[in-house]
C-alpha cells in the first residue's frame, strides 16, 4: 500500500519522500530495464530516466492503479523509446494480428504445440526470441513471465484491457514458438541469427 502521507509529500516536491516511495520498487525496475535492454549501462540509463520521469509525473499520479503498475508503465515506455531510438525494436505486427487483438481470432495454422517447442530451447534462444517481439508483446512477456505479474496488473501497467493482455501474451507465445521452431518473425531477426549474433543486443 502506498503511504498516502509520503505520496503527498512527494507530490509537493519532497525528493526524500519520493525516494522513500520508489526505492522498494527499484530492484524490480532494474530487472525490467535489464530485460528490455540486456545491457548494464543501457539498463542503468533507462532506470535513471524512468525515475526522473516518475519524479516529474508524480504530481499526476492519482492512485488509479498501484504505484508499482504505474512505475512499470513508465519503465516500459522509457525502455521501448530507448530501443526505438537505438533501432533495436522490430516492426510492429501485421493487420491480422492487430485484428486478433481487437477480438477476432484467426484460424490457427500452426499445429505444433508451443509448449513442447519452448521447453526444449536454451536460455539464449529464448532471449533472442523475446528480442524479436514487437514492443507491446515484449512488454507483456517481460511483465508476465519475468516479473511474475498477473493479467490485471499488466492491464493496469499497460493501460489496456485484460483481454488484450491475454491476446498479446498468446500471440507472443506463438511467435516465440515459431521463432524457436525456425520460422523467424522478421527478416532482420533471421539475418541476425544467420550471422550467429544475438538479435537486438548491443555489443
Amino acid at each position: 500500500m502506498t503511504d498516502e502521507f509520503t505520496l503527498r509529500r512527494a507530490q509537493k516536491g519532497d525528493a526524500q519522500a519520493f525516494e522513500q516511495l520508489v526505492t522498494p520498487h527499484e530492484q524490480m525496475l532494474w530487472r525490467v530495464c535489464w530485460h528490455y535492454t540486456r545491457h548494464q549501462e543501457d539498463a542503468a540509463d533507462c532506470l535513471q530516466e524512468t525515475m526522473l520521469k516518475a519524479w516529474k509525473a508524480i504530481k499526476s499520479y492519482r492512485g488509479d492503479c498501484s504505484l508499482s503498475s504505474w512505475l512499470y508503465r513508465i519503465a516500459a515506455t522509457v525502455c521501448l523509446d530507448f530501443l526505438r531510438k537505438q533501432k533495436r525494436l522490430p516492426q510492429t505486427e501485421s493487420a491480422d494480428e492487430m485484428a486478433e487483438e481487437e477480438g477476432f481470432t484467426p484460424v490457427d495454422s500452426s499445429p505444433t504445440p508451443d509448449e513442447a517447442v519452448i521447453r526444449r530451447e536454451s536460455a539464449d534462444n529464448i532471449r533472442a526470441a523475446i528480442d524479436s517481439l514487437p514492443g507491446d508483446m515484449r512488454t507483456v512477456i517481460i511483465l508476465y513471465a519475468l516479473q511474475g505479474l498477473g493479467y490485471e496488473e499488466i492491464a493496469a501497467a499497460t493501460q489496456t484491457a485484460v483481454g488484450t493482455v491475454k491476446s498479446r501474451l498468446n500471440r507472443a507465445r506463438q511467435k516465440i514458438a515459431k521463432f524457436l521452431a525456425g520460422g523467424n518473425i522478421s527478416a532482420d531477426t533471421a539475418s541476425d541469427q544467420m550471422k550467429g549474433g544475438q538479435p537486438n543486443v548491443r555489443a
Partner: peptide
Amino acid sequence: DENEVLRDVMAGLNDEVPPMP
C-alpha cells in the same frame, strides 16, 4: 497453462540479471 510454461521456462532468465550497479 500454456502461458504458465512461459513463466517456467523464462524464470531462469531472471537469474542472469546482474545486480544493480
